[in-house]
């Protein structure tokens, strides 16, 4: 199938999903307290948008700050672990241990340390996205073909020059693959923390809406989250295609 047809089918599937939802709700006369129809949710979203907007910004702020910190820490750790076989072997078990902790469990700790609000949201977003970045950077560096490094070594390059000119560019496809996952994860982390311990953010809006039986607002929050998640994913997909086109052999990057 051509690209265009795939896109048309994909759009049709999304539209069909909502249409089916709408029709089934009307046909089975589902109470809008349980499951509001998509049109009702859209109407709520439209009328309540001015109220939702600051919360959207809040969630976006927590997510992106946490994600940014996560990237910095993740890349640093990844480079340290990936460039040294010793560090790779020594630190890996600890990292796996950290990563296997369900991240919900760390929220109470952050709340205990920093109180409720923005800080635990940022920190949760951070810890949840560090691991995939570390693993991918380390894997990218550790799997660099020795032949490519030899090219630089014969030229008398220093270790840091080899890292800059071979290791890091070689790890870029791995890095960007992890960024797409990481940004969605930090979003999950931020919202998670907001639902537990915050009076701002989409997560908090949804908790409040839930306890007040404002079902359509609850779903409106869900839609906003989905839209933000897709948008962030799209941004990093776009960046990935631009930066690491060589790895997928895209012909359009090859024109100079």
């Amino acid at each position: 199938m051509s690209n265009l047809r795939i896109r048309i089918c994909s759009a049709a599937l999304i539209f069909g999903f909502f249409a089916m939802w709408e029709v089934l709700c009307l046909w089975l006369q589902v109470s809008d307290l349980l499951l509001p129809r998509p049109t009702e949710i859209a109407a709520t979203l439209w009328t309540r948008f001015p109220v939702l907007w600051p919360h959207i910004l809040q969630t976006l702020y927590s997510t992106l700050t946490g994600f940014g910190l996560g990237v910095i820490i993740g890349v640093t750790l990844g480079v340290l672990i990936g460039t040294s076989r010793l560090a790779y072997g020594v630190a890996y078990p600890l990292l796996v241990g950290f990563s296997s902790i369900p991240k919900v469990a760390v929220v109470p700790i952050f709340v205990l340390w920093f109180g409720s609000g923005t800080t635990p949201a940022i920190l949760t977003a951070m810890v949840i996205c560090v691991f995939p970045i570390v693993v991918n950077i380390a894997t990218g560096l550790a799997t660099t073909e020795p032949e490519l490094e030899d090219v630089l070594k014969t030229l008398g390059a220093s270790r840091s020059e080899i890292l800059w000119n071979v290791g890091l560019p070689r790890a870029m496809p791995y890095f960007f693959a992890s960024l797409k996952v990481a940004v969605t994860l930090s979003f999950v982390g931020a919202v998670l923390s907001e639902t537990v311990a915050s009076n701002r953010g989409i997560g908090n809006v949804m908790m409040t809406a839930s306890s007040n039986f404002q079902t359509s607002l609850l779903f409106a929050g869900l839609f906003v989250l989905a839209a933000m998640g897709v948008a962030l994913y799209a941004v990093f997909s776009f960046l990935e295609a631009r930066v690491t086109g060589w790895a997928t052999r895209k012909t359009d990057i090859a024109v100079t």
């Binding site: 490519l148 090219v151 030229l155 390059a157 070689r170 870029m172 100079t256």
Partner: peptide, 23 residues
């Protein structure tokens, strides 16, 4: 080397230029 170990993320021009960046 036996295998042309050109760096896949660089154009031919930048690959050939690499030694000038290091040496």
């Amino acid at each position: 080397f036996q295998n042309p170990t050109l760096l896949p993320w660089l154009t031919i021009e930048r690959n050939v230029m690499l030694p000038l960046k290091i040496v």
